[in-house]
């Protein structure tokens, strides 16, 4: 996968997991986003989530989930896409606009620094906090041999 696609996958994932409020809060420090026109949506639909029998066997359909998608075209030509879990249309449209803007090499460094990286850091901290809480409930077995 080309490096550009890999970084695009990363920011799309970060925007999908951030709330509209959290993204919006980062935009104050960011360069203004180019105006955009909606190509499709934002619209809410379903994605069928699949699991695997035994965790690693044949795929099966587990359950649907709500997903909102949006596609926009930016003045300048880039097309931005977003697929985000849940039903927040504002989040999907903003994520699509940002995806479009982030494809612009002149805007990307500033948007990465002011929006994407701070969101990634906040997410990493929340993940780490949960991991620390889980670690505090890890059983530390001791045996009679150790007690002597």
């Amino acid at each position: 996968m080309p490096e550009d696609t890999e970084s695009r996958r990363r920011w799309m994932g970060i925007l999908a997991r951030a709330s509209h409020g959290a993204i919006q809060a980062r935009l104050g420090a960011a360069p203004a986003l180019p105006p955009h026109t909606r190509l499709r949506g934002p619209e809410t639909g379903l994605v069928m989530v699949r699991g695997r029998a035994g965790g690693d066997g044949a795929a099966f359909n587990l359950s649907e989930m709500t997903v909102t998608r949006c596609a926009v075209t930016l003045h300048g030509g880039n097309v931005g896409h977003a697929y985000v879990a849940g039903r927040d249309r504002q989040q999907a449209e903003l994520a699509a606009a940002l995806d479009g803007a982030l494809q612009d090499a002149t805007l990307r460094p500033a948007l990465m620094a002011t929006v994407i990286e701070p969101l990634a850091a906040a997410e990493a901290e929340a993940v780490a906090r949960e991991a620390r809480k889980a670690a505090a409930t890890r059983v530390q077995f001791f045996t009679m041999a150790n007690m002597r």
Partner: peptide, 23 residues
């Protein structure tokens, strides 16, 4: 409610080995 929504597609099968574990 779900019958009122369009279907966008199927996910990649979950990787439960990569789960962020709470328990």
């Amino acid at each position: 409610y779900r019958t009122t929504l369009p279907r966008f597609g199927y996910s990649t099968p979950l990787d439960t080995a990569a789960m962020r574990i709470r328990r």
